[in-house]
Measured scan of single mutants.
Amino acid sequence: MTEYKLVVVGAGGVGKSALTIQLIQNHFVDEYDPTIEDSYRKQVVIDGETCLLDILDTAGQEEYSAMRDQYMRTGEGFLCVFAINNTKSFEDIHHYREQIKRVKDSEDVPMVLVGNKCDLPSRTVDTKQAQDLARSYGIPFIETSAKTRQGVDDAFYTLVREIRKHKEKMSKDGKKKKKKSKTKCVIM
């Protein structure tokens, strides 16, 4: 069974824990209790493949930012979460993405942009803004509501699919490099 290491990042209060708990335990946590770091595991079937999701729910508070490099190193894919009623959390996505790329030393890291709290009427981040940002990053965008469960499975499952595509691409690139290195030079 394939294991996928997913990391949920975003500013404090955007609903990272609520999304994760909704996926794992099928219930909505409405009281806000700032996370330092929590880890969850769940076995699911995605596109006919049974897999184990190892999900790291991270601290959004700035005082825990020193811990970010460590979990970013171990993560295979990242859910970059903002709240649709919090423009600052949307603007912060850029910083999370840049930090992930720096730590992973790669421009090509599996990510999904997630606009959470889409059940709320007080939207300050337009869907088109988020779609445009995701398009500019070359990553999928999904709106979710941890409260109603809308888009929750889709967000995590899409990230797994992005990781699969990335692994497939990397193995193809690896095979191309191996083929090239088999060419021999004969000096007579």
Rank of each mutant, 00 (worst) to 15 (best):
T20A: 09
I55L: 08
S39P: 01
E31M: 14
E63Y: 06
G15V: 00
I24N: 13
D54K: 07
K42R: 10
E49K: 11
V44L: 12
L19F: 10
D57Q: 01
G15L: 01
D47H: 08
D33I: 03
A11L: 15
V7L: 04
G12L: 06
D33Q: 03
A18M: 09
T35Y: 00
L6A: 06
L52G: 15
L56E: 03
T50W: 08
Q61I: 07
Y40T: 02
G12S: 11
G13L: 12
Y32L: 06
L56G: 03
Q22E: 12
V29C: 12
G60L: 01
D33L: 02
A59Q: 00
I46M: 12
V9S: 06
V44I: 13
V45A: 14
I55A: 08
G15C: 00
L52V: 14
D33S: 03
I46V: 14
E62W: 04
G48L: 05
V8N: 04
E62G: 06
Y4P: 12
E37A: 02
Q43C: 10
D33E: 09
N26Q: 14
I36Y: 04
T2L: 09
A59E: 03
A18W: 04
E3K: 14
G60P: 01
E31V: 12
T20Y: 02
R41F: 11
D54G: 06
G60E: 00
N26F: 06
T2G: 14
T50L: 10
V8Q: 04
L19W: 05
G12F: 07
I36V: 12
E63D: 11
L52Q: 15
I55E: 02
I24Q: 14
L56D: 03
V8F: 04
D47G: 11
A11M: 13
D47C: 06
C51Y: 14
E3M: 08
Q25N: 13
V14H: 12
L23E: 15
T58R: 00
T2M: 11
V29P: 13
T50E: 11
Q43S: 13
V45P: 10
D47I: 03
N26E: 14
Q43E: 14
V29K: 06
F28P: 04
V14W: 04
G15N: 01
E37S: 00
V44D: 14
T20F: 02
P34I: 04
D54V: 04
D47S: 08
D47P: 07
L56K: 07
E31H: 10
R41E: 11
G13H: 09
T35C: 00
D57H: 00
L52W: 12
V45K: 15
G48I: 05
T58W: 00
T35D: 00
K16N: 05
D54W: 03
L6V: 11
A18F: 02
E49Q: 14
K16W: 01
D38M: 01
D47N: 10
E31K: 07
A11T: 09
A11G: 09
L56V: 14
V45D: 14
Y64I: 02
I24H: 14
I46F: 09
G13M: 12
T50N: 12
A59N: 04
G13N: 10
V7F: 06
V7I: 09
A11F: 15
Y64R: 01
V14Y: 06
H27R: 07
Q61T: 12
T2F: 11
E62T: 07
L23S: 15
T35E: 00
Y4C: 10
Y32Q: 05
G12I: 05
I55W: 05
G48A: 08
A18S: 09
D47M: 06
R41A: 12
I55M: 10
E62L: 05
L6D: 00
Q61N: 12
V14P: 10
Y64V: 03
D57E: 02
G10Q: 01
T50M: 12
G10M: 00
G13Y: 09
L23D: 07
H27G: 15
